[in-house]
Design a protein around this nucleic acid. Structure first.
Length: 488
DNA sequence: TTTTGAGTTGTTCGA
DNA sequence: GTCGAACAACTCAAA
């Protein structure tokens, strides 16, 4: 057919998804090396079945990351084409319209995304358009690892031993120096997608916290390697110190690939800038990300279905007032409230504090983990389809390799232990800003004079605990006992 | 083949 | 004040 020959020399489409970077982008590198015009596509897909719609904070992040990507592409001769619609239709339409000869993309590793990509591949293949996909966003095919008996892993440590003990991840690819743009391709205007808030503009603190996009990601990684990685293993639990990587939104949107992070950390260790234990700890965090995708393949409905079905009978409470207090950071537990307000203000929460805040919702308030998961999905800039539900289920005790039922965080002890000076709490709960370290973790136990001197009035300027720790703990253990006995 | 021990992130209690 | 035990049930790998 004449169309065939025409198509064989047509432009290439590179379809960007959660890989909003130029460096270590195998699909882009392959297309740029082919010496043909390249159409760089980002598709806002709110129509394909099975895809989870982005939460508010993630939409905000996406807008900035796309702006940065468009600018970086322009700097190298390329152009970002924005389209909207269900993937199968929109990508096929673009291919037809531009007489594209091939579609290149980095593989999506979530089951829903992968299913859509299979449909797109079939549709384009029937049209004679070649489709190539590349591994880029996970270190390992999340569906490939198996235990000695051939089953998927349910325990992290053996999973990680197998992954860590295998051949090391490939080296990251450089960004292509030049991308030959294709001219005259119609594009949406980013502003028309209304990804960012206007009235009210709730993103001011987020803009002050993050520089979205690949250049900002690379800067953050450099800063972490220079200042945060040394001491990471011991200090990562401290929300008052700068020893967390804060790379989660970078990995979520693919501004960095795990290959880049892996090798950057290994180089830091080789150069003596970090201890092996620190680097191994960070690598294992990349391992948890992989493990979460491994779990998502075992249970594609991970965000809604208990991984351990015994929890289907768990007696959750309906308590809208308590849920709202948790969301707004008004539980009366300073560490929980600081975390929830950090989340609302900046779109991110320190890892240790996430565990404490999640445990509080689930165990002290007995509110269904799915309500917490949904709130985090909407408010976290790093909300990830695998990590978010897997970790919520882990805290709830219904996930893989889950926390034992009796592990109920004491939010006051956690605060004293991991924020010993109270600096983190005071930063995000300013009404407690004048309480010293002996009072700030549990104002309800502080001497009345200390409270009045600091201008704190319990129940007015700051709430009393909405549930006493001892009572919440007792109630949680009783609720967990009901599903233990129900199974027998 | 069976057994054994360890397994991201803790708290409380009693000696 | 410190320390060890107890608090399930199950998965996985090694002995």
């Amino acid at each position: 057919m004449p169309g065939q020959a025409e198509r064989g020399s047509g432009p290439l489409i590179v379809w960007f998804r959660d890989d909003l970077r130029l460096a270590d982008h195998p699909a882009l590198a392959a297309a740029a090396a082919a010496g043909r015009p390249v159409i760089c596509l980002y598709l806002l897909d709110e129509a394909s079945p099975g895809l989870r719609l982005l939460g508010g904070a993630a939409r905000w992040w996406l807008a900035g990351s796309l702006r940065a990507l468009a600018e970086a592409l322009r700097g190298r001769g390329g152009e970002l084409t924005l389209r909207r619609g269900a993937a199968a239709d929109a990508v096929a339409a673009l291919a037809t319209e531009t007489k594209a000869s091939a579609l290149f993309m980095n593989r999506r590793d979530d089951p829903a995304g992968a299913a859509i990509d299979r449909a797109v591949t079939a549709r384009l293949g029937a049209d004679g358009t070649e489709v190539k996909s590349f591994a880029a966003n996970l270190l390992h095919d999340p569906n490939a690892l198996r235990t000695g008996s051939g089953r998927p892993f349910q325990v992290f440590t053996p999973f990680w031993r197998q992954l860590r003990g295998g051949s090391p991840p490939r080296a990251p690819l450089p960004a292509p120096s030049r991308i030959a743009g294709a001219s005259g391709v119609a594009t949406d205007a980013l502003a028309d997608w209304h990804l960012e808030p206007t009235r009210p503009d709730w993103a001011a603190d987020m803009r002050a916290t993050w520089v979205r996009g690949e250049p900002g990601a690379q800067r953050d990684l450099e800063v972490f390697l220079a200042h945060g990685l040394k001491g990471y293993a011991a200090q990562r639990d401290r929300p008052d110190l700068p020893h967390t990587s804060r790379l989660s939104p970078r990995l979520r949107f693919g501004e960095l690939s795990p290959y880049q992070v892996w090798h950057a950390c290994m180089h830091a260790a080789d150069a003596g800038r970090a201890a092996r234990t620190d680097v191994e700890k960070l690598l294992s965090e990349l391992g948890w990300r992989e493990f979460c995708y491994h779990l998502l393949h075992q249970q594609p409905a991970l965000a809604t279905v208990n991984f351990n079905r015994r929890f289907d009978a768990f007696p959750w409470r309906q308590d809208g007032a308590a849920r709202a207090a948790w969301q707004q950071g008004r539980t009366g537990y300073p560490l929980v409230d600081a975390g929830m307000r950090q989340l609302w203000a900046t779109g991110w929460m320190h890892n240790r504090v996430r565990m404490v805040a999640a445990s509080f919702l689930i165990k002290h308030l007995l509110i269904d983990w799915r309500a917490g998961e949904q709130w985090f999905w909407d408010t976290l800039v790093d909300a990830d389809v695998a990590s978010n539900p897997a970790n919520w289920q882990w805290v709830a005790g219904c996930g893989a390799d889950a926390a034992p039922y009796f592990r109920i965080f004491n939010p006051v002890l956690q605060s004293e232990k991991f924020d010993p000076g109270g600096d983190y709490v005071r930063r995000f709960v300013p009404e407690l800003g004048r309480l010293d370290a002996s009072s700030v973790h549990a104002p309800e136990r502080a001497p009345p004079l200390a409270l009045s001197a600091a201008g704190v009035t319990l129940g007015a300027s700051y709430p009393a605990p909405i549930v006493a720790h001892e009572e919440g703990r007792r109630r949680a253990l009783a609720a967990l006992a009901t599903i233990k006995s129900a199974e027998r």
